[in-house]
Design a protein around this nucleic acid. Sequence first.
DNA 1: CCTACCGATCGGTAGG
DNA 2: CCTACCGATCGGTAGG
Lengths: 196, 196
Amino acid sequence: MAKIKALTNGTKKDSILKNAASLFRKKGFRAASVRELAEMMGVEAPSLYNHIGSKSELLQEICFDVAKDFTAHMKTVLASEKNAAEKTAALIRFHIAKMYNDFDKVYVSDNEWKQLHKAEADDYLARRREYENAFAGIISDGIREKLFTKMHPRIATLTILSALRGLELRQQNKKEFSLKELEENMVRHLINGITI
Amino acid sequence: MAKIKALTNGTKKDSILKNAASLFRKKGFRAASVRELAEMMGVEAPSLYNHIGSKSELLQEICFDVAKDFTAHMKTVLASEKNAAEKTAALIRFHIAKMYNDFDKVYVSDNEWKQLHKAEADDYLARRREYENAFAGIISDGIREKLFTKMHPRIATLTILSALRGLELRQQNKKEFSLKELEENMVRHLINGITI
DNA sequence: CCTACCGATCGGTAGG
DNA sequence: CCTACCGATCGGTAGG
């Protein structure tokens, strides 16, 4: 009765996920069809179901993989000896590098998570809120330590995360500036803007 | 043969557009159905077609209405006597106010324009690029006038516009801070960050 | 991995 | 403004 699931080859599943992230980014999750994804993989649509459970599962794996990375990094930053400004800079750099090196997945996670099924979307949003609260906490520390100017920590958090999440790093941008250049400019801009 | 189109009542069409913007923002354009929109209006789906040409037309009107507003504002700023820092601040304030007062439409325009038909998407993107070029030009002026620090004008533009476009102003945010507070904090953050 | 196929949903039209 | 309905497309399954 139950179909025997092929052993997930690892490489194969990764390849599907990579193509899915690219497709979902370009067209949006709802506009992207499983048939198109199958074509990218060089197989017929039903064949994909030997490797995936559903289209929605692909989005889930993309979103929660990315969320896990950011949450893990936040944990190490919070546990570090850095001061608030250094912590903020480390978080900013991580966002930029992730976006630069793994654009499709991060972009899809940031922009298509609303297409997750309700339970997963709620879970994703909860993690996101937790991340934002931790971020705002660091900003508040910075204000208390007199590193940052007096301001609304939530707004500063919103501003920084908005700038980082909204980054659209097309191929053309990558020709205009390097990752290092992007990092240095953005860190300065976003940190100096709130530094005393 | 040709159906006689009901006179666009104005109020009615505006009401449809408002509901469409709200629906498209919450679910995304592709996931939002004409049937749902009809339900919001209290009619059956086919009845909507006495007021609209197509679902896609609604997205077009939302996106190009918003684009027109931003382009028009850019024109008046460019023609003003302000210096580069003042011009940049004026642009930032306009973005924030628009986002605050017309969240659904601006959000849909920023996040769903990719769902426009190819010709319109290309047109929209071209206008967006023009806007970004004008913005980057002002930043460059600011650097030349020694108001802004030496930096990559494209990256500064990307950072500012990304922060502004990515703003998600839910009801909850509006309780945490006022429009004025948001404006003052963000303008300071994004301008001080590049000011000498 | 494929062929054959299904039920659901969608945008939109005909006709009144 | 409604009822009735259509062609297209979609995610996914059966069965081999």
